[in-house]
Design a protein around this nucleic acid. Structure first.
Lengths: 225, 225
DNA sequence: TTGACAACATACCGGGTAGTATGTTCATCA
DNA sequence: TGATGAACATACTACCCGGTATGTTGTCAA
């Protein structure tokens, strides 16, 4: 029941993999700072100097690790996608009814998005940039790749709710619309939730629970999740 | 039942009020172009020259009508809020159960948002800018005003769903969370819907209907809206 | 007819920013 | 120990963009 602690991590602590050379720590520091900067100001308004200032360094360090601002952004994007992929992976192919799989997927997804708000916002803006049509062709190529990545993640939910509908647990009309609205509902905390020190420990879980309940019923699920 | 046609207007046709001097047409042209530019590139990336180019003019014309980029943006913001306020106004204080009022409000809101996607996106980004903390104090003041405006609009829905809950037609836990998630669901088409010439005439209505159905059930409404 | 003003266009300036070129320091290894 | 290269910092450039200052054209009223 309580599998808490498996993907818990606050906004300021994100490590790449287990243990890597110091250079990777430096890189990770930059990625974290960049995530916050991009979240606070958006891609265009956030400057490389902003990111450098936040890690207590100068431009030189940034460009030593990343060839361009677009690449830096893309790396944060990928970093965020990796994280959300990893935490949902264990619940992707569990046996049983699809609706039960969905409940766990949705909850873990929402909790992780809310927990790592900065990364989630960068992923969001990355998708937005892709829809708008990124400027340079090189940037375009990098984003294409990542958006494909992100779409494959979306497909996991898409197939799950489709199957749940087939099994009679969900009721909705258009699958594409349902998936989009569901995602917007699940992701909504990254726009209106701001973590405060006074929040109790289970605050985010509580939010995620209510958001998932909304989406569950929105998709036509009966009873309480 | 079918009050269609009262607030229908496509994205490229928005007039200010009924009939005004030519100068106001020129201003309105700029506002329309600015809305599209801000939607396509975002506030920071969209330049005054972009807007000017879109109306087939130069910077001079823009700055003749608007004192600054921030003011131009604010005017589009206000324009969009006015529109959404106007179309929902007739359904705000109708007698009967709150849930019935909500149904009409939500549908008209969603349809209008989807119809005038550009304006809706500008309003969205305006709120975002305010949350991020706008740069200059003057810009801040203008945004404060508009966000208050937009919050008063949000309160209409907030009070409506609160009353509907009191009347036993809706079921949810936290009022604030429910309102936020509901709004995200209702507004979601402005992010994933792109109008195409091949769309049938009732396409947007159809989308709005499904989105409202999702939100209705998400709020705990029973049966079909 | 002329002055005055609206409604722009043109030309220009200054600040900020992505990106580059060039130091500088320090660890490692032959 | 000397050379090499990683990991930065510093200094600089080119460009874009918001804003301004000034020029031009048409209209309208006295």
């Amino acid at each position: 029941m309580t599998q808490a602690g498996d993907d818990r991590e606050d906004t300021d602590r994100m490590t790449l993999s287990v243990r890597e050379p110091i250079v990777e720590d430096s890189r990770a520091d930059i990625l974290r700072a960049a995530a916050v900067c991009f979240m606070e100001k958006g891609y265009t308004a956030a400057s490389i100097d902003d990111v450098a200032r936040r890690v207590g360094a100068t431009k030189g360090r940034i460009y030593h690790h990343f060839p361009s601002k677009a690449h830096l952004f893309a790396e944060v994007f990928r970093f965020g996608m990796d994280r959300i992929f990893i935490v949902t992976d264990p619940h992707r192919n569990t046996p049983g009814r699809a609706v039960d799989r969905w409940k766990k997927l949705a909850f873990v997804h929402t909790r992780t998005m809310t927990n790592s708000k900065a990364l989630a916002r960068v992923v969001w803006e990355g998708v937005e940039m892709h829809l708008r049509g990124a400027t340079t062709p090189e940037q375009r190529a990098v984003l294409d790749d990542l958006v494909t990545y992100r779409n494959s993640y979306s497909d996991v939910f898409r197939q799950t709710i489709a199957q749940a509908r087939d099994e009679g647990d969900f009721t909705f009309d258009d699958l594409g619309i349902a998936n989009q609205v569901m995602f917007m509902a699940l992701n909504s905390p990254i726009f209106w939730y701001t973590p405060r020190p006074s929040d109790p420990a289970d605050h985010i879980d509580n939010i995620a629970k209510q958001v998932v309940a909304f989406a569950y019923r929105g998709l036509g699920g009966r009873g309480e999740p």
